[in-house]
Design a protein around this nucleic acid. Structure first.
Lengths: 227, 227
DNA sequence: CATCTATTCAAGTAATTATTTGAATAGATG
DNA sequence: CATCTATTCAAATAATTACTTGAATAGATG
């Protein structure tokens, strides 16, 4: 075969593959995708969540759209962005898992129960499933309500972190409380656990979020209620 | 929680995740990994296969090693690089699959049987499995011998492309010939198919290589012989 | 031990990417 | 219709990344 033609073909193929990985290669864009894995969101909201300027957020989202990792739609004068395909979430997950395997101090975040703000007791999904099923524990989702609505773990109850204090009285005394948020690298659940422990609850954070894992799929996406 | 501390934690986490995707974000490095998915290789050989300068190849390989996607070892004065983890191959595969799904003209490479140098008949792995099992076809691996040795499909026979002409007489007359190489984006199998068709064989290229897919795992890695 | 081969290193240039700023647009709302 | 909100666009600067060239090293081999 003609060498020039062959090179063009390879450039075409590898050029396309790397549109995907280029889009994933910026920490900010990776973080945006991580938020979008919780459900559709507006530019404005993503800008607040990631502490970026709106213009910068918009530009990153456009880059993600060009790489076909997200799609956008207009409702009134809000533009909603969302993941283009469930495989995008899988790609995020696989990348995280590989990072955890290959960089020892990454893996520790999950296993040694350390997070920013001090360490917090962690419970594995397998244990949590058992505790919740047996009625010894309740599972709370401390993300925003719409994220809970878009997808959550079975039997989880929605208590956004900001409302935890006011809803404290609704929590059953004597039961363990297992909190989760977006995943192991989101800090809301840790904040919730510290808050609850200061008030005498036996609280744990779940080692993952609703976007991941075989066990999460057993916990699943239905059930639960908004407290 | 303290905001500065939280931001540092996120920078740490997302910074690590994107070490992986940054490493994958260059077409040349993606191509290098694709070659390394066939087995360990030296810098020199990779430079030839990818048509890059040795210095440039070496630098890219060092970047991949820093991202923990490959490891290196020294045998005499040859440095062998290889994939650090099987999940790296999975990541390549998932990225390719996503690109095929999201970019229509990418997907066509596989389904419309077009490749550089003119289109060539393609056979799916499922069909190939059946044809080979029933004895109506033979499966040939046209990659280098050491790549075949490192991992190949069951019942495949090794005939490196360069030796195809001299080994033509060993091919059974009247049987279909199904050729494969590194995967859908490698052109050796297409070259082999065109060569064989010009000489009267009913030849097809397999739609994937040994690094991928559920069906490949049925075809598997053992069996076969070097012709 | 001189030389060869394989690989890495260092420096420089070219190219690409990220972020900020301020202006532009498009659709709601008073 | 004037104004407000949400988002995008354009231009400029700062930062990072890619590739080339030529020299340096380290281990074989004659």
């Amino acid at each position: 075969m003609n060498k020039i033609e062959a090179r063009e073909f390879k450039n075409f193929a590898y050029g396309h593959f790397t549109k995907i990985s280029k889009a994933l290669s910026s920490p900010k864009r990776f973080e945006l995708l991580d938020y979008l894995a919780q459900g559709p969101k507006t530019v404005d909201r993503l800008a607040k969540e990631t502490h970026m300027s709106v213009a910068n957020t918009s530009q990153h989202l456009q880059a993600l759209r060009e790489a076909r990792l997200v799609t956008s739609s207009k409702v009134k004068n809000h533009h909603y962005y969302e993941l283009a395909d469930n495989e995008v979430a899988e790609l995020l997950q696989l990348t995280k898992r590989l990072a955890e395997r290959q960089f020892p101090d990454m893996g520790e975040v999950r296993t040694l129960e350390t997070t920013a703000g001090g360490s917090v007791p962690v419970m594995s999904s397998a244990d949590a499933l058992e505790e919740v099923a047996s009625g010894r524990a309740i599972l709370i989702d401390v993300r925003a309500e719409d994220e809970y609505a878009s997808r959550h773990l079975t039997h989880a109850v929605s208590i956004p972190l900001a409302q935890l204090e006011e809803k404290l009285e609704h929590l059953p005394i004597g039961k363990k409380v297992i909190a989760y948020c977006r995943g192991a690298y989101c800090l809301y659940a840790s904040d919730a656990v510290r808050f609850l422990r200061e008030r005498g609850f036996e609280a744990y954070r779940l080692d993952e979020g609703p976007a991941t894992s075989a066990i999460s799929q057993e916990l699943d996406t239905a059930g639960g209620k908004i407290l």
